[in-house]
Amino acid sequence: MSQRGAAMATRAPDRPAAPPRPSGKRRRFNGRHWRYQVDVKGSPYAYVAPFFLLFCAFGLFPLLYTAWVSLHEWTLLQDEHEFLGLDNFIAVVQDSYFWNATFNTLSIGFLSTAPQLLLAIWLAHLLNRPLRAQTLFRVTLLLPNVTSVVAVVVIFSQLFGRDFGLLNWVLSLFGAGEIDWRAGTGTSHIAISTMIMWRWTGYNALILLAAMQAVPRELYEAATIDGASNLTQLRKITIPMIRPTMIFVVITSTIGAMQIFAEPLLFGAYSVTGGQDRQYQTLALFIYENFARLDFGYASAISWMMFLFIIVIAGINFLLTSRTKGDLR
């Protein structure tokens, strides 16, 4: 080995080179890294925060405050409100007017919700097929929902009029006598349910139609080749595939039916009692009647009873609807 080679062999190894110093641009990115993480992870919460803030201010707080008021004897004529505990709720349970309003609410709700959902499914199924002027029909379905409830009730009150109503005139052609639709319990419930059906059937039909648009067309084509009729396709394909949407429609319709207020109020010419015999007074009208009497504690207790009814009935409808399994065979 030469002298130069020996010197190179015995020379200590060089130190590893130091890592390059990050540039100014890299340093600036590292300085903004925490803001980038906050933007990515915190933006979704910031976007939904306005809704929850408004809900807490105008929904949750009034709900909790109403629960507190329901435990007191609360009127505007008193400076101090006596704590009663559950006495208001006990009085509500023992009130025959409350159970009458509950029966009227359930009756009107069932008469308006069940036919409404069946008709909405049928209309959505028709509009889901190739038709001319589909957009025109879909817009027409939504018109009753955007119409003022006052105008709807005024028109239907004329249709259900006892002396000069169009419906009584049609029934007279078949030998039926004049019917006082406001006087009887059953007749008034049918009249009010008809108004509700007319307003909300098209709205629910459009929601169901949107769900039907997502069903693969290949399923219908295969069913048509196999000789399945339109009714069979609706029962075996459409309804099972849109079951989540149907659950949503059933629950929202149930909640709306339990809160019926404007239709019976206007149908009775702004009578909060729902007729002379309270034949169509709903829970919402009964609550309004007690608030008008300035008995806020008792009215709040009724409100919470109605809230519990809504939860129970909506839960029952959810269980019944979710247990309905589709069969695609």
Rank of each mutant, 00 (worst) to 15 (best):
residue 77 L to H: 08
residue 78 Q to P: 04
residue 79 D to L: 10
residue 79 D to W: 10
residue 80 E to R: 14
residue 80 E to D: 13
residue 81 H to P: 02
residue 83 F to T: 05
residue 84 L to M: 06
residue 84 L to H: 02
residue 85 G to M: 02
residue 85 G to F: 00
residue 87 D to A: 13
residue 87 D to L: 12
residue 87 D to E: 11
residue 88 N to W: 02
residue 91 A to H: 10
residue 92 V to K: 00
residue 93 V to D: 00
residue 97 Y to I: 09
residue 99 W to I: 03
residue 101 A to L: 09
residue 102 T to M: 14
residue 104 N to W: 11
residue 104 N to P: 05
residue 104 N to Y: 11
residue 105 T to D: 07
residue 106 L to G: 02
residue 107 S to T: 13
residue 108 I to K: 01
residue 109 G to F: 02
residue 109 G to R: 00
residue 109 G to A: 13
residue 111 L to P: 08
residue 112 S to M: 06
residue 114 A to P: 00
residue 114 A to C: 14
residue 117 L to M: 15
residue 117 L to N: 14
residue 117 L to S: 10
residue 118 L to S: 01
residue 119 L to T: 14
residue 120 A to M: 07
residue 121 I to A: 12
residue 122 W to Y: 15
residue 122 W to L: 15
residue 123 L to K: 14
residue 124 A to G: 06
residue 124 A to S: 11
residue 124 A to L: 02
residue 126 L to H: 15
residue 126 L to Q: 14
residue 127 L to N: 08
residue 129 R to Q: 13
residue 129 R to V: 04
residue 130 P to R: 01
residue 130 P to F: 02
residue 130 P to Q: 01
residue 131 L to S: 12
residue 131 L to T: 13
residue 131 L to Y: 02
residue 132 R to W: 12
residue 132 R to E: 08
residue 134 Q to Y: 03
residue 135 T to F: 06
residue 136 L to W: 08
residue 136 L to K: 03
residue 136 L to Q: 03
residue 137 F to C: 08
residue 138 R to I: 12
residue 138 R to S: 09
residue 140 T to H: 13
residue 140 T to V: 15
residue 141 L to Y: 15
residue 143 L to H: 03
residue 145 N to T: 12
residue 147 T to K: 06
residue 148 S to Y: 08
residue 148 S to N: 12
residue 148 S to M: 05
residue 151 A to V: 11
residue 152 V to F: 09
residue 154 V to F: 08
residue 158 Q to T: 02
